[in-house]
């Protein structure tokens, strides 16, 4: 691992990058696979289908990117480090995982341009099959879903998606980064 010449300390960027890329790929893969499962299932009248629960459960893994990055840094550096550094590594890893998974999601739209459209149709079909909500409310929900999908393909939509994800993933990974310091960082010798 590279050394920072000025401070003679290990750089944490490789750990941040590695954890972000790894977890970003995992999150992207799970959300894409689950997306196809939803597209190919019959509308049940519920937005939240069983496949969606699996997707959320595995997306929670993204909140542990900070811990993974801290573990890698602690293992590679073999040196004691402060809580503050662990928190920073966790936060940056959280930011990284949101960016990587969003970019991969956009790239997938180039490979399968119909994916987003099919997802939208699947969600709308589910809302349309809901019998327990009034007609007006159903129509409003369908319009809102359609507008949301239209926006998600634009630059503003992509930036909005990242802006929504970064603060929360950042804070949660900061927290798991702190837990990672306690679990994996070497104790300072007194």
């Amino acid at each position: 691992m590279e050394m920072n010449d000025e401070t003679q300390e290990f750089s944490y960027w490789p750990s941040v990058g590695l954890a972000s890329v790894l977890m970003g790929i995992v999150m992207f893969a799970i959300s894409t696979i689950t997306g196809y499962v939803q597209i190919n299932s019959e509308p049940t009248g519920a937005i939240f289908q069983p496949a969606y629960f699996g997707y959320i459960f595995l997306c929670l893994i993204g909140a542990f990117t900070g811990m993974l990055a801290v573990w890698h840094f602690a293992r590679e550096s073999g040196q004691p480090f402060t809580l503050g550094k662990g928190a920073l590594i966790g936060f940056l890893a959280g930011v990284g995982v949101v960016i990587i998974s969003s970019v991969l999601g956009q790239l997938w739209n180039l490979i399968d341009p119909n994916f987003k459209d099919q997802m939208m149709k699947s969600m709308i079909a589910n809302v349309d099959a809901m019998s327990n909500i009034p007609e007006d409310a159903r129509k409003t929900q369908i319009d809102a879903i359609a507008q949301q999908f239209r926006e998600s393909g634009s630059i503003t939509g992509i930036l909005k998606q990242m802006a929504y994800g970064i603060p929360f993933y950042g804070v949660l990974n900061l927290l798991t980064g702190l837990i990672g310091v306690k679990l994996f960082a070497k104790e300072k010798e007194v």
Binding site: M27, Q147, Y164, G165, F168, L172
Partner: peptide, 12 residues
């Protein structure tokens, strides 16, 4: 479903 609050947590 399209509130910003829901959007912020939709991956978690």
């Amino acid at each position: 479903i399209t509130e910003w609050q829901h959007q912020m947590f939709h991956m978690l």
